[in-house]
Simulated assay, not measured.
Amino acid sequence: MSFLQLSGVSKFYGDTCAVADMNLSVEKGEFVSLLGPSGCGKTTTLQMIAGFEPVTRGRIELDARDITQAKANTRGLGIVFQSYALFPHMTVEANVSFGLEMRKMAKAERLDRVRHALSLVHLDQHARRYPRELSGGQRQRVALARALVIEPPVLLLDEPLSNLDAKLREEMQFELRQIQRKVGTTTVMVTHDQSEAMSVSDRVVVMEAGRATQIDHPFQVYEHPRTRFISTFVGKANLLEGRIEGEDDMQAVRVGSLSVPMFEPGFRPGSAVLLAVRPEKLQLVPAGAGRLDGQVIERFFLGSQWLYRLSTPVGELTVLCANDGRIVLEEGAQSAIDWPDSCTRVLPVDQGALA
């Protein structure tokens, strides 16, 4: 059995379903992220694991122990809130020590644990400071140290990096992952930031409208999205309307005058589908030398990349090209677009498309 197990967990507020039939198995030492837009149920799921919200239906088990009805203060979980929730009148050392004091731990062991926790987050030299004297990144580390010092079986992170600026958030992503790997604490994080979830997680749970729509490794979620929503929420995608033609292993997707081979089985012949291809998988080639000819409508300089929008016979397509010294196309320029067959994904428009 998995270390943390959610079985058919649902949460209703009156007639409104916030989380529907969540089934999730988290292995010991694993880092799992709940990813989705606001209102998708990810924070509610975390709060049910923490014990802050009662479960309407289903079961939550921790290390084979049923904790579904257990009070939050008896679960022993470590929690880092979005606001960090540090005590402003306490020093860094006192903030980190607070949970151990509540557990009546002996002073000598308590001090040893606090020193170790502060060393882990590189704040040894800041033990006597107050939260107001720290940067945002340092306050985030204090909150993390306070959660880890009690040696919880599971660490819960509620959008812990959302209050940081973009550069610091990126730095803290990797630091958070390094700390988690060093300590080995089973971790569940809530985030709406796709890059954050992809960079630090062993697995990602993509949520939409209260349901887990895909639970998979980050690479699989990005390269093999199961729905239209996932293909556009996790990264960007060009979506082309098409129809399945052919039978069994000889199927292709017809998009306008294009016939694109497909590699996903299980679609009904003649059914409407979407052909998804990531902008960075597309290549700009000389006019007449690709699958589609087009004209550059707009271009945007992104530093390491150029983003182009092209008008084509099958609609507008977005192309991302590396800023690698090649010729930059002007708006209005003619070009062609090509891509490897293996880079396309076929998504059902509705369940009727699936065989």
Rank of each mutant, 00 (worst) to 15 (best):
C17Y: 00
P54Y: 04
E30V: 04
A20Q: 15
K42D: 05
R65L: 09
G29E: 10
S7K: 14
V26Y: 05
P88G: 07
E30T: 05
V80P: 09
C40F: 09
L111F: 00
E93Q: 14
S7Y: 00
E93D: 12
L134P: 10
T68V: 09
V9Y: 07
G51S: 12
N73Q: 14
A94W: 02
A64C: 13
V19A: 14
F98G: 01
T56K: 11
S97W: 01
L62K: 05
V32I: 15
Q138W: 12
G78M: 10
G14D: 10
E133K: 04
G39Y: 08
L24R: 11
R103C: 07
H126W: 14
S83D: 15
R57Q: 15
F12D: 09
N23R: 02
V80K: 04
L100P: 08
A108P: 00
H122K: 15
S7L: 03
L6S: 01
G136S: 13
F12I: 00
R113T: 02
R110T: 08
L24E: 04
G58H: 05
R110H: 04
A72M: 13
L100Y: 12
S135F: 11
H89E: 13
K42Q: 02
P54K: 14
F87V: 02
F31C: 07
R65E: 15
E109V: 04
K71V: 13
L4C: 10
A108E: 15
A64S: 15
H89G: 11
N95M: 05
V121L: 13
A143F: 11
G78A: 04
A20E: 15
A143T: 09
R141M: 10
L111I: 02
G29H: 05
R113P: 03
Y13P: 03
S7V: 05
Y13C: 01
V55K: 03
L6I: 05
P88A: 12
F12M: 13
A127G: 00
E53R: 06
V26Q: 09
G99F: 00
S7G: 00
L86K: 02
L123F: 12
A85R: 08
G36R: 02
V26A: 11
A127I: 01
G39K: 05
I67Y: 03
L86V: 02
V19R: 05
Y84E: 08
G136D: 07
G137C: 09
L62A: 10
P131Y: 10
C40A: 14
E30S: 07
A72G: 05
Q125F: 01
H122V: 02
L134R: 09
T91H: 13
Q138L: 12
P54L: 06
K42P: 04
Q47Y: 14
